[in-house]
Design a protein around this nucleic acid. Sequence first.
DNA 1: AGTGATAGTCAAGATTAGTGACGATAATGT
DNA 2: ACATTATCGTCACTAATCTTGACTATCACT
Lengths: 156, 156
Amino acid sequence: MPEKQKRSARKQAEPDLGILSSWLLFAVQRELFETMEREGFEKLGPRHGAVLAYLDEEGTRATDLAALSGQHKQVIGTLIDELVEAGCVERRPDPQDRRAKLIVPTEAGLERMRRSDAIMAAIERRYAKELGEEDYAQFKRAFTRIAQAARSRERA
Amino acid sequence: MPEKQKRSARKQAEPDLGILSSWLLFAVQRELFETMEREGFEKLGPRHGAVLAYLDEEGTRATDLAALSGQHKQVIGTLIDELVEAGCVERRPDPQDRRAKLIVPTEAGLERMRRSDAIMAAIERRYAKELGEEDYAQFKRAFTRIAQAARSRERA
DNA sequence: AGTGATAGTCAAGATTAGTGACGATAATGT
DNA sequence: ACATTATCGTCACTAATCTTGACTATCACT
């Protein structure tokens, strides 16, 4: 091994946190959506995950989805349009606030959310096996702490 | 704490790998680019990072940058145009291959790359302090293994 | 009632990503 | 030497995505 290796090689061997996150994010996203599609679920982009991931069974307001996912209301709006089109959610008036609408998952939407959660869990189990249960659990605890710290720093 | 908590709350408390990755990626990216801009570097988007991150001191070919960053040649082309505009890189003919051009960082570009690496390192040190050096080192080893596994799975 | 803030939508623009084709050059096989 | 095939970077075009500003209806507070 050369003492003064090329920068690109170093970045491959000892990637920084940003590079690691992007590798993992894109790989996980792609695997999730390819699996869903292969299983016959209607094709949706990763962007729709931003809505589905934060959706409550009893429904969630579009503004909350925007805040949770960090996207603009406008984007959430079109995302919801497409999810309605795909039969995953429906818009219901919010009894608490007549300005607002609750985005409520349909049965098909719930099914998709459950399946998506299960696939993510399977991906994690694969890594847990590869790394060892103990080490993986510790990794995930640390990751959760760091990511939550990063996120709260964002919001400030 | 309710036994049957809402899904969105659960996702906040026990996020999956995809959510964690996106939180960390976006936070880190934003901090990096905001810091760079605050220090007077010309404003560039996160996308340019895909080029700068993998750039070698001696220069790298556009096609290699496309492969490393996983983006299309076309995208890399415009990114390079903008980086040339910003004075960070220049196109030089590749003596080995007259079809190709080497993308070589200018002195200003090198300065930016060094600074960017330093900021990332500082961000990591902050998390290391927060988590404890020992735990952080173990976290990063695990993260590196998992992300590299995910990435190689991608390429297959 | 009157005021300012908020929810969701409409519309238009800017930015970014993805595709196919092309001229130039290189690599390969004969 | 020559023809064939593959690769490098670019051009032109389309589609997807993000961003911004404005607007209506409703809410919360006085």
